[in-house]
Computed example of a mutant assay.
Amino acid sequence: MFQWYKKVVTDNYANFNGRARRSEYWYFVLFNMIFAISAMILDNLLGLNFEPIPYGWLYLLYALAVFIPGLAAAVRRLHDVNKSGWFMFIALIPLIGSIWLLVLFCTEGTKGANNYGEDSK
C-alpha cells in the first residue's frame, strides 16, 4: 500500500501525463492524511504551531512538499476516467462541483486506451 504513496512522491513527482488507478490515488490520499495529521500533532507537541491555529512549520513544510505531487496524482486520476486535468476547476462550483469531482475520483477508469494513454491496470 505504501508503495503507491512512494510512487506518487518520488517517481511521478510532477508528472501530469498518463493515468493513475484508483488505488494509486486513494492510497496516496490515505497516507498523505496520516502524514499531515502526524505533522500537525508534532507541531503541537514541539510548540511549533502558529498560536491561534493548530498548524505549524512542520505541517506547512510537508504541505508545500506534497502540493505538486498531489495535484499531479489528481490530474492523472482524471485522465484515467478520460477527463482533462482542467476538470479540477469543477470544484469551484459550490457544493455540486466538489461532489462531482469526488464521483469522478471514485469512478472506475476507462477500459483500454483512452486519450491520455494505455490502461493503467
Rank of each mutant, 00 (worst) to 15 (best):
L58M: 15
W57H: 01
F28A: 07
G85I: 08
F31Q: 02
G117W: 15
A74F: 10
N44S: 09
I53Y: 05
V81T: 12
F50D: 06
L58F: 11
L78D: 14
W86A: 15
G70A: 10
A65C: 09
R19M: 08
L61K: 01
F35D: 01
W57F: 12
G56E: 02
N32R: 01
G56Q: 03
N44H: 03
R22Q: 13
A20L: 09
T107K: 15
L64I: 10
A63T: 13
I34Y: 02
E51L: 07
Y55H: 10
V9D: 02
V81K: 06
D80W: 09
D11W: 01
L45G: 00
L78W: 11
K83W: 06
N17G: 11
E24Q: 06
F105D: 08
Y25N: 10
P54Q: 04
V66W: 04
A36T: 15
W100Y: 15
A73R: 05
F2C: 05
W57S: 12
G18W: 05
N115R: 12
G18S: 05
I68D: 08
S98K: 13
T110K: 07
K6G: 00
G56V: 02
A91T: 12
M33T: 11
A14S: 15
R76T: 07
S120Q: 12
W26G: 06
L104C: 14
E108Q: 09
V29R: 05
